[in-house]
């Protein structure tokens, strides 16, 4: 999987039938459950080994400008593979992550699900939008919305996340951090 493949996900394939749609939806919901309940190691185990997890920066660019807003060579917000996600999870599991104690409460609400066939029989193009709400301590509060363009791969009887492009909508993140996977 690579970033160029993710940039090319434009919802032009043939929509999948109801059986595949329903099955993949269960996996998408399962993933959201893990992310919302701090079950990050379970989530990490479910990821494909060649995962590309990419959240580019957003920038305000004039329409007439020919250089693309999003490019694989720019500094991103996240650009992870499975190893770097495991590295990040070591922080959470260290027991010394003071700022996560008491823990953040978060909900990722996932909607606008669309699923398409790709030119690979075992890979599916999955589009969603999400609302990520976080509440911390007494009044800390943050809501972010974004769009996800995924590749989910059928492996045996499972569907596993192999690629994800996350398009947050804020060019200036109106929040102090992204202590979260989306």
């Amino acid at each position: 999987m690579n970033k160029e493949q993710l940039l090319a996900l434009n919802a032009i394939g043939k929509p999948v039938g109801i059986d595949v749609f329903f099955t993949i939806q269960q996996y998408v919901n399962q993933e959201a459950y893990w992310l919302n309940h701090e079950k990050l190691n379970e989530w990490c185990d479910s990821l494909e080994d060649d995962l590309v997890y990419w959240a580019p920066l957003r920038e305000n660019i004039l329409r007439r400008n020919r250089t693309p807003e999003i490019s694989p060579s720019k500094v991103p917000l996240f650009e992870e593979n499975k190893d770097s996600i495991i590295m990040r999870l070591r922080r959470n599991d260290s027991g010394m992550c003071w700022t996560e104690d008491p823990p953040t409460r978060q909900i990722t609400a996932v909607s606008n699900l669309e699923i398409f066939h790709t030119d690979k029989v075992d890979e599916f193009e999955v589009h969603t939008v999400f609302t990520l709400y976080r509440s911390r301590f007494e009044r800390d509060d943050s809501t972010l919305m974004g769009r996800r363009k995924d590749i989910w791969r059928k492996v045996g009887n499972d569907y596993r996340l192999a690629g994800r492009l996350i398009l947050l909508q804020q060019s200036t993140l109106l929040t102090k951090n992204l202590n979260v996977f989306m």
């Binding site: 959240a55 060579s73 500094v75 991103p76 917000l77 996240f78 650009e79 992870e80 770097s84 590295m87 990040r88 922080r91 992550c97 003071w98 700022t99 301590f137 800390d140 993140l173 929040t175 102090k176 951090n177 992204l178 202590n179 979260v180």
Partner: peptide, 25 residues
């Protein structure tokens, strides 16, 4: 460097994440 700095010192970076919380409070 593009990736190393992002994974440590950016809003989702493992080090910067800790700092903002302290300064806010």
């Amino acid at each position: 460097w593009r990736l190393g700095a992002m994974r440590t010192f950016s809003p989702g970076g493992i080090l910067e994440m800790d700092d903002g919380e302290n300064w806010e409070h």
